[in-house]
Amino acid sequence: MSNRVLIGHGTENDFVVLPDPDGVLWPESRLDAAMVARLCERRAGLGGDGVLRVVRSVHVPDAPAVLGDDLARCEWFMDHRNADGSLAEMCGNGIRLFLHVLVTEGLLDRSACTDGVWVGTRGGPRRVGAGADGVYWVDMGPAREFGSGSAELAGRRFDGLAVSMGNPHLACLTDADLDALDLATPPRFDAALFPEGVNVELITVLRAASEGADAHIRLRVHERGVGETRSCGTGACAAAYAALVAGGTSAGTVVVDVPGGRLTVDVGPDTTVLRGPAVVVAAGELTPEWLAG
């Protein structure tokens, strides 16, 4: 078994990446919840918001169930786990990094990715592509509103829209000072509305419209199974949708500033497209000493 690992991020939403094209280097028995948590631990491990295993779909046991008839067109599967070891459905920052790794590892030619390639996720198939400017884009699917709810943080209530991007979000627009909020403690939420947990976005509108965009917003997010992250791709999409709805529409382009950088979201009636960078920071080997610990 190879102990080779990569570290990368998309707008500072960072991941430990495990190249495993043929599904033999990091099988399910090796990549259990305890191993994921150790890899993601920021002092005793490598550090990351999650783990991405780069593997062909045919080697993922649950891929047929989550992809159905789309299994054949998804050669690659983003096997994504949160920092606590739980399985994750979808991550917009992670899937851009996933494609970047496929390209930099020589598993796909960048020129073949211009129009997008299909990647399997536990949230369903996603089409992701590489722009000539080094920016990656991903078709995130439609933003699906499924009600309204609230989150409680430090005794303060934040009302928001429940939005599914393949995973659940509570997108809360607020005039609170985002910098003053403590997101170290998980927000309280309605477990009946979100039985599998929820990512909570706290959003301020900077401008109702800006040059080339219909809105410009700022975002902080607490991700289930992780905590506060520097960026969240699905969260940016949910936040963009909520900001547009608050402005009286459900379609448009939104610039989203997150602590780790800037993303752009195009929200349409049938789908949502997320654009942003992806970077591999380092590559190396896990040592026998650490693995034996």
Rank of each mutant, 00 (worst) to 15 (best):
120 G>V: 04
130 A>G: 01
50 G>F: 12
57 S>F: 07
76 W>D: 04
62 D>W: 01
111 S>E: 15
73 R>G: 05
112 A>D: 14
106 G>E: 01
141 G>T: 10
91 C>G: 11
67 L>Q: 08
107 L>M: 15
143 A>L: 06
75 E>L: 07
105 E>Q: 15
118 W>F: 14
100 H>S: 08
150 S>R: 14
81 R>M: 05
60 V>F: 01
85 G>R: 13
84 D>Q: 00
65 A>I: 07
142 P>G: 00
127 R>G: 04
123 G>F: 13
87 L>I: 06
95 I>Q: 00
106 G>N: 03
85 G>Q: 06
91 C>A: 15
147 G>Y: 11
123 G>C: 10
134 G>Y: 12
61 P>I: 01
146 F>I: 03
127 R>D: 03
123 G>Y: 13
52 L>V: 10
116 G>Y: 06
109 D>N: 12
155 G>V: 08
138 V>I: 03
142 P>V: 00
94 G>I: 04
75 E>N: 07
135 V>E: 12
91 C>V: 04
103 V>A: 13
84 D>H: 02
53 R>G: 14
142 P>R: 00
153 L>S: 11
73 R>S: 12
149 G>F: 14
125 P>C: 04
73 R>V: 14
124 G>Y: 05
155 G>M: 13
95 I>Y: 00
92 G>S: 08
87 L>Y: 04
59 H>I: 05
90 M>W: 00
155 G>N: 11
147 G>L: 09
154 A>Y: 06
83 A>M: 02
118 W>G: 07
78 M>I: 02
56 R>Y: 07
99 L>W: 07
134 G>F: 10
138 V>N: 02
146 F>W: 11
133 D>I: 05
84 D>L: 02
50 G>V: 14
71 L>H: 14
50 G>E: 08
112 A>E: 15
132 A>Q: 13
116 G>N: 09
55 V>T: 13
75 E>I: 08
132 A>G: 09
133 D>Y: 08
127 R>H: 09
155 G>F: 13
96 R>H: 03
147 G>F: 14
103 V>N: 04
90 M>F: 02
65 A>P: 03
71 L>W: 01
73 R>Q: 14
82 N>E: 06
82 N>Y: 09
66 V>R: 12
61 P>D: 07
52 L>D: 06
81 R>C: 06
99 L>P: 13
105 E>T: 02
64 P>R: 00
100 H>T: 03
68 G>W: 11
126 R>I: 04
49 D>S: 06
153 L>R: 13
151 A>R: 09
121 T>D: 02
142 P>W: 00
62 D>G: 02
49 D>V: 05
131 G>R: 15
60 V>R: 00
48 G>R: 11
148 S>P: 00
73 R>T: 14
79 D>I: 06
101 V>W: 01
56 R>W: 07
146 F>Q: 11
127 R>P: 02
146 F>A: 12
149 G>H: 07
117 V>Y: 05
144 R>F: 03
72 A>E: 15
97 L>Y: 11
137 W>F: 13
94 G>T: 03
56 R>G: 11
100 H>W: 04
81 R>P: 02
